[in-house]
Nucleic acid binder design. Structure first.
Length: 849
RNA sequence: GCGGGCGUGAUGGAAUGGUAGACAUAACAGACUUAAAAUCUGUGGGCCGUAUGGCCGUGUGGGUUCGAGUCCCACCGCCCGCACCA
């Protein structure tokens, strides 16, 4: 009996697949395509166990769909720009490019060891000039279409990394990489006009029915649509140019409850008043305030009374004080509000502090009442509100908007939280923004024939900041328009730009335009996208915007504006933690291979010291609870890792990596191999018994049916469970060897998307035609899934008491008769008729007494 | 604060409103073995009972239903996202 040796079999089959180019996809209009894509990795140089899970799931889908007859497109590439390369360059005195391409080479080897069915012929890295040159072409088209523009904006500035950070890269007021306190800074930056698509990006979410509900909701909240009224107050005592103050509100119905107005410290009015030292000092205080969650929780509402008043639009006798307040955001609405303390908690807190009026204008019962410490936010009837009295909130909103619009001092307005996407980064290792700054012509787009604008090779990272900025021979150029001495834009693009269209580039990666319409029409959209939930908003929202912008500029068909038909977010891989107590009383973490568990006691291998076993949490370097996928492959082979990451836990949930679980997977695969080996060594004898053969056939088709269901529905753990069952059934079967051989061949094909190498070995051993990877996926025969008899549980008053086995299509009256003659039922009825008798055909019987 | 999700054996988890705990892990017992490993077989929610069997059981309390892990209401706990968004 031979033992299955993964270390020999796996490289062998990987090579055979490669030689036969089985995963190479070519456009073929006569076949239905299926585009499977996993979020492409950052080439850190190290394959993580999380990659294994992500790419195994995508690979399973790709292999399964291939076996189902689809023309599967499964490309792979590298998200290769970004700061780690610059940091490595600084640390090791290398070039970011050299470091990156070295990592790519290493990671590609590690990926191939997993036996993934990628079509590498489309491979690119986003740092290839052929890729980012096309990205520059897209930028120029976006610029021409008005989708890219430059403006002065207040941005998050990381003083250590010396670059702008996106809002999401700021955590608790600190730069996510450097940990430095982030500063607000006014800079002229490039933006993409994603806000043009706010409404469309929101409404189109409804159509993404194969996306997780959670992701759609997160995007919806992120876009943050609100409907309200934007209008002008007349001011009294304001500086020249500020005769009016424009505010935004979603509660125009509460206008009669207004007791103050407030503006942001960054509002033009607040700035105009800064000649007053007190105002300047107050504004400075506001700007310094932390933006972290706890700080905001604790922060008091503070305000500065400017002495300016605004006049109530419907009661000229009422004048409201205008404050500068720390809780008003400049970049939402108009940066100015009116405060209605009775119906807004913040306004109430503020009013209590500065002793302002609190007048309820919405009442639950139509009667007036006192507001104490909590604002009233529910629905109700308008009171204390002149012409609005007696109306409900919606009518009152409509009425106010109507009157304000009639008076010409404002209009109903929809606002979105989503802001334009700032893409300028003061970094070297990114895609250069292809424009030139000319003293005479201003901002001049680079000519397309000059693309790509390549990054210079001769750069140093011995100083902080952007090396492009201090690279005169690269920076100083002639103006493309007038030829005068000018300077290149030295900012590069946010790396999220790179990943916003790579899926489209894969469809025609050699094209000298960003895409090729014919290819894009055939291959787009991505039918199944697989990746982590951490990209729920940014990457996926940016990609949705990009696809629309590319359609508008003629680079994608209209049908591809939602680039990902289906999205799946896989869970993380977790592991127990192991710690001992160090001399300073703090925990010392140990890696899984440093400890040993025997008889339920976990100790250190080296010293025998007792180890505290912590809960299973996300693998991280700091807790040292990582397992190295390469070591796992070394020990058990890739198929075992693939099998284990898919078993036990549902794909969307976190999976716990245990040594025993990995070993058990390995043992099971060995068992399958042994079974196949035994079958291969027996002559095909005459059928032993028709009933055993029939039972095996039925078990086989149930397995086909159930495994298929799991593969189709991202319930891979259930498919694995069914494969375990099928293995047991086959091992115990008394059917003849010919029947067992057929069952085992079907087993190999069912397992092929999960354990492709082992499947090939078994397929070959049992004389399958060609390679298993090219064999069609088995199809269940519906005839073999139905049973002739069915066992019906009998409940008495909803509790299971007995069961009867009857013919599948026995009539309901017959079943009732049989049920009533069951010994448990007779005993329970004691001669009385049942109150009710429920028979659910093929399911259950319930006797109510 | 707002929004969303989840609570099932020692553990990961199964269960179109219809026999709760499939499958797997850990554990225990047995077979094989001089022994171990490997392999195979079996037991496996709790309590009572020799047993047929009975009672209880899916975070807690209620409800709908012939029947609830599943649907509805309230509460408790945990997790995630957003957060001074007017």
């Amino acid at each position: 009996m031979s033992r299955y040796n993964a270390h020999v079999a796996e490289p062998k089959w990987q090579q055979k697949w490669q030689e036969a180019e089985v995963f190479k996809a070519t456009r073929d209009e006569s076949r239905e395509k299926y585009y499977v894509l996993e979020m492409f990795p950052y080439p850190s140089g190290v394959l993580h166990i999380g990659h294994v899970r992500n790419y195994t799931m995508g690979d399973l889908t790709a292999r399964y769909k291939r076996a189902k007859g689809f023309n599967v497109f499964h490309p792979m590439g590298w998200d290769a720009f970004g700061m780690p390369a610059e940091n490595a360059a600084m640390k090791n005195n290398t070039h970011p490019g050299a470091w990156t391409y070295q990592n790519i080479a290493e990671m590609k080897n590690q990926f191939s060891a997993l036996g993934l069915s990628h079509d590498w012929s489309h491979e690119f890295a986003t740092c290839d000039p052929e890729y980012y040159g096309q990205q520059q072409a897209l930028f120029l088209d976006f610029l021409e279409a008005g989708l890219a523009y430059r403006k002065n904006a207040s941005v998050n500035w990381d003083p250590v990394d010396m670059t702008v950070l996106a809002n999401e890269q700021v955590e608790n007021g600190r730069g996510w990489r450097s940990g430095a306190l982030v500063e607000r800074k006014e800079l002229t930056q490039w933006f993409f006009k994603i806000s043009d698509y706010s409404e469309e990006l929101l409404t189109a979410l409804d159509g993404l029915d194969k996306w997780p509900e959670k992701v759609r909701l997160m995007q919806k909240n992120w876009i943050g649509k609100s409907q309200g009224l934007q209008f002008n107050f007349k001011t009294i005592g304001a500086p020249s140019g500020f005769e009016q103050l424009e505010v935004y509100t979603t509660r125009p119905d509460t206008l009669f409850g207004a007791s103050f107005a407030a503006v942001s410290a960054d509002h033009p009015l607040a700035k105009a008043l800064e000649s007053d030292a007190q105002v300047a000092a107050f504004n400075a205080t506001c700007r310094q305030m932390g933006t972290s969650a706890e700080e905001m929780e604790k922060a008091d509402k503070i305000g500065f009374d400017t002495g300016i008043k605004v006049v109530h639009p419907f009661d000229a006798s009422r004048e409201l004080p205008v404050y500068i307040a720390n809780f008003i955001l400049m970049d939402y609405g108009t940066g100015a509000i009116f405060g209605c303390p009775a119906h807004d908690q913040r306004d109430l807190d503020f009013a209590r502090k500065y002793d302002l009026d609190v007048v309820p204008v919405v009442s639950p019962d139509g009667e007036s009442y006192e507001i104490t410490t909590e604002a009233f936010l529910d629905a109700g009837t308008l009171i204390n509100s002149g012409f609005l009295n007696g109306m409900d909130i919606d009518s009152a909103k409509a009425e106010i908007i109507k009157r304000i619009e009639k008076a010409g001092s404002g209009e109903g307005k929809t606002n979105y939280r989503l802001r334009d996407w700032g893409i300028s980064r003061q970094r070297y290792w990114g895609c250069p923004i292809p424009v030139v700054h000319c003293p005479d012509c201003g901002v001049v787009p680079e000519k397309k024939q000059n693309l790509p604008i390549k990054l210079p090779e001769d750069v140093t990272f011995d100083k902080p900041g952007n090396p492009l900025d201090r690279h005169p021979t690269w920076r100083d150029v002639d103006c493309p328009k007038c030829g005068a001495a000018a300077q290149r834009e030295t900012d590069t693009m946010d790396t999220f730009v790179d990943s916003s269209w790579y899926y489209a580039r894969f469809t025609s990666d050699k094209s000298d335009t960003p895409t090729n319409m014919e290819d894009a029409k055939y291959w787009m959209n991505v039918d199944q996208y697989v990746g982590g939930i951490e990209h729920a908003i940014l990457h996926l929202l940016y990609s949705r915007f990009f696809a629309r912008a590319m359609a508008k500029t003629g680079h994608l068909p209209e049908s591809a504006i939602e680039p990902f038909n289906a999205l799946f977010n896989q869970g993380m891989v977790c592991h127990e933690t192991y710690s001992t107590t160090g001399p300073d009383g703090r925990p010392v973490w140990h890696s899984p291979d440093e400890v040993i568990t025997k008889d339920g006691v976990t100790t250190l291998r080296s010293t025998g010291e007792l180890v505290t076993v912590g809960p299973s949490i996300k693998m991280s370097k700091s807790k040292r609870n990582t397992v190295d996928p390469l070591e796992q492959i070394e020990q058990f082979g890739a198929d075992t890792s693939r099998w284990f990451t898919l078993s036990d836990s549902p794909p969307e949930r976190d999976v716990e990596w245990t040594t025993s679980g990995a070993e058990a997977s390995w043992k099971h695969l060995q068992r399958v191999w042994r079974l196949a080996d035994e079958i291969s060594q027996c002559a095909d004898d005459a059928p032993k018994g028709a009933s055993a053969a029939q039972a095996l056939l039925k078990a086989t088709h149930h397995a086909i049916n159930d495994v298929t269901y799991g593969f189709e529905n991202f319930a891979f753990n259930k498919s694995i469970a069914k494969l375990y069952e099928f293995t047991s059934a086959l091992a115990k079967s008394k059917a003849g060897n010919a029947e067992k051989r057929e069952a085992m061949k079907i087993m190999a094909l069912l397992m092929q998307p999960v354990t492709p190498h082992l499947s090939e070995e078994i397929w070959e051993l049992l004389g399958g035609t060609g390679m298993a990877v090219n064999a069609p996926f088995p199809l269940a025969d519906p005839e073999l899934l139905v049973e002739n008899t069915v066992t019906l549980p009998i409940q008495i008053n909803g509790k299971r008491r007995s069961e009867i086995t009857v013919a599948k299509d026995l009539s309901k009256p017959e079943v009732e008769k049989l049920a009533l003659s069951d010994h448990a039922v007779i005993k329970a009825l004691q001669g009385n008729p049942p109150k009710k008798l429920i028979v659910v055909p093929g399911r259950i019987i319930n006797v109510v007494i």
